[in-house]
């Protein structure tokens, strides 16, 4: 068991090295290099750019730069933000709680909704058709547009909910914070529930086609009990892994949603950094996002391996 986890963890290392090469190459593909931002700035003289290049080691061979960057990244020295000169790690870390809150609540709601939809779908044919269409519509919605429309309806037209931010300036009430959370969490929950209800429904269908379900039926077990106890329990395992594997989608969704609703999380920081071409922040974000996705994939594999004895023979 432990050996599977450690063997699987070892595979993550070359994967992350590949990712780091990709991220590094991307930033250095900029015409004029990472300092291109200053090239258009009339207040920065060419000599200053030259000095900065030497100071930052940008005149050294690319391979040396890559190794130096990688070493620094691993030991936690992520450099300083071009925008305000503060350490990148501080800027990222202070934004993490807001993002975790948003992703946590929206994923929780999405899992509940997806489970209910999948359960009802497997016993009611008509509902199943409607739910399938609804789910396809849900995954086809541009997330940022859904955010704009909800803002328009619930904040601008009806005035029920605040349109952006995490709390009213100066206010700190729990209700106020909750009200700010509703719209961005709803947007992410819709996107995820649409995708996840499809997965759970198809794995429910597979479970319901298994011989042991027919066995349960022939023993006279009630349909409700068959669906909730026998099928759902078997369908949940692949579902849990799919939710964990969707971490990459959550990261993209958080970037978009936080930016539309001015939610002060990591995703919002990313779009701010993008507008200012703050490359140190962008690189750190992409690396952290990829590490998080790789680690969650690893967790998903290990969970399946631990819980489902059928997968153990394969490796």
């Amino acid at each position: 068991m432990l050996s599977f986890a450690s063997r699987r963890a070892l595979q993550v290392v070359p994967l992350l090295l590949l990712v780091s090469l990709l991220v590094f190459a991307l930033i250095h593909a900029a015409p004029g290099g990472p300092l291109s931002l200053y090239l258009d700035n009339p207040n920065v003289r060419p000599q200053d750019i030259e000095r900065l290049r030497r100071q930052m080691g940008l005149d050294r061979p690319l391979a040396a730069q890559y190794l130096a960057w990688l070493r620094a990244f691993i030991v936690g020295d992520w450099g300083y933000s071009y925008a305000d000169g503060r350490p990148v790690m501080d800027r990222l870390l202070e934004r993490v709680p807001a993002t975790l809150q948003l992703i946590g609540i929206s994923s929780f709601v999405a899992v509940i909704v997806a489970t209910i939809v999948a359960l009802v779908s497997s016993v009611r044919r008509g509902f199943d058709r409607a739910a399938t269409i609804g789910a396809v519509a849900g995954i086809s919605l541009p997330v940022f547009w859904l955010g704009l429309v909800l803002q328009l309806v619930f904040a601008n037209a009806l005035g029920w909910l605040p349109s952006s931010g995490r709390s009213t300036f100066g206010g700190s009430g729990t209700l106020d914070r909750l009200a700010h959370l509703v719209l961005p969490a709803a947007v992410l929950a819709v996107a995820h529930a649409a995708a996840w209800s499809r997965y759970l429904r198809s794995s429910m269908r597979q479970a319901l086609a298994e011989p042991f379900i027919m066995g349960a039926r022939s023993r006279g077990v009630s349909e409700g009990r068959i669906v909730t106890r026998h099928a759902l329990r078997n369908a949940l395992l692949p579902f849990v892994t799919v939710v964990l594997l969707d971490a990459s989608m959550m990261a993209s969704g958080a970037v978009v949603t936080e930016s539309v609703f001015a939610w002060p999380g990591v995703g919002g920081l990313f779009t701010e950094a993008l507008a200012k071409r703050d490359y140190t922040v962008l690189m750190a974000f992409l690396m952290c996002g990829s590490v998080a996705v790789a680690v969650l994939n690893l967790v998903a594999d290990v969970v399946v391996h631990t819980l489902d004895p059928r997968t153990r023979g394969e490796t």
């Binding site: 994967l15 930033i27 970037v255 992409l286």
Partner: peptide
């Protein structure tokens, strides 16, 4: 397949946003 895995673990939209901003 390792290359494919690596590409899949980079969040797609942020990656594209950086690439588009850079290029």
């Amino acid at each position: 397949m390792r290359g494919t895995d690596a590409m899949l673990s980079v969040p797609r939209l942020p990656l594209l946003m950086i690439a588009a901003a850079v290029l």
